[in-house]
Simulated scan of single mutants.
Amino acid sequence: MSRASQTLFTRANTGLPPSYEVLKEEHEVAVLGTPASSAPAGPTIISIQGETSVPDHVVWSLFNTLFMNFCCLGFAAFAYSVKSRDRKMVGDITGAQSYASTAKCLNICALVFSLLTAIVLIVLMVTGALVAHGAFQQYGQDHGGY
């Protein structure tokens, strides 16, 4: 007889609680035993959803509000970004995603329109400078100047 089985018999007779080895052996027997139902056990699928990260685009909206506020689109984007952050704090993920999507679209529109306006202004300034330079040269040639 092994020492663990001797411990089991002597402790069972004396009324002392069983040792760790006895509990481990009982657990192994319970695990290796046949299942109670004869139907095959199917897989158990547990889906755990983690924290959903919703970008609220507040920094981008603030930048557009301060520097590229084409037709107040930057301000509107900032308002929607704040609404998205509020919805996220309350726990309304769907509402936060909706407001964030609107803020993103407004930010993109403000950025594109502001860049196009800047490009058009640069082109107009360059062409205006070239036309003015040509006009001054023509005036100089016509009036005997330089």
Rank of each mutant, 00 (worst) to 15 (best):
G50H: 09
G128T: 08
S101H: 06
Y20G: 15
A110C: 00
S5F: 13
V82C: 04
Y146L: 14
M1K: 12
Q137I: 13
R3M: 10
D56H: 13
G134D: 04
C72D: 12
L8Y: 05
A12Q: 09
T14E: 06
R11V: 02
Q137P: 02
M89F: 05
L16M: 08
T65I: 00
M125G: 13
R87M: 12
C71H: 08
S114P: 04
V112W: 03
F75R: 12
V126C: 03
S101T: 06
Q138A: 14
W60I: 07
F113K: 12
Q97G: 09
Y80C: 15
S101Q: 11
V126N: 02
A77T: 03
Y139P: 04
A39D: 06
V58E: 11
F136S: 13
G50A: 12
S19W: 05
A36E: 13
E25Y: 07
V29M: 13
I46Y: 08
Y146K: 14
V31E: 12
G144Q: 01
L32Y: 03
A100F: 06
T52I: 15
V29F: 07
V54T: 07
A110Q: 01
E28H: 05
P18W: 00
P40Q: 06
G140Y: 03
I46H: 08
Q6Y: 02
R3Q: 08
T65G: 05
H27Q: 11
T10E: 12
F70N: 11
I122Q: 02
P18R: 05
F70Q: 09
A79R: 07
V31R: 15
F78N: 06
A100Y: 04
V120G: 03
F63E: 06
S84V: 05
L124S: 06
N69F: 01
T127G: 00
Y146E: 07
V112L: 15
G128A: 13
E51M: 13
G42P: 15
L115M: 14
G144E: 05
F75H: 10
A77D: 02
G42C: 15
A79F: 00
I108Q: 12
S114H: 01
M68T: 03
Q141A: 15
C109W: 00
I122M: 09
T52P: 07
N107V: 05
T102L: 15
E21C: 08
Q138L: 15
G95F: 01
A12I: 10
M125Q: 07
V31G: 04
L16Y: 01
Q6F: 07
D86I: 09
P43H: 09
V131Y: 01
G91H: 01
G50R: 10
L115S: 12
G145F: 13
S38E: 12
S101K: 13
A132E: 00
T34I: 07
S2A: 14
G128D: 04
M68Y: 03
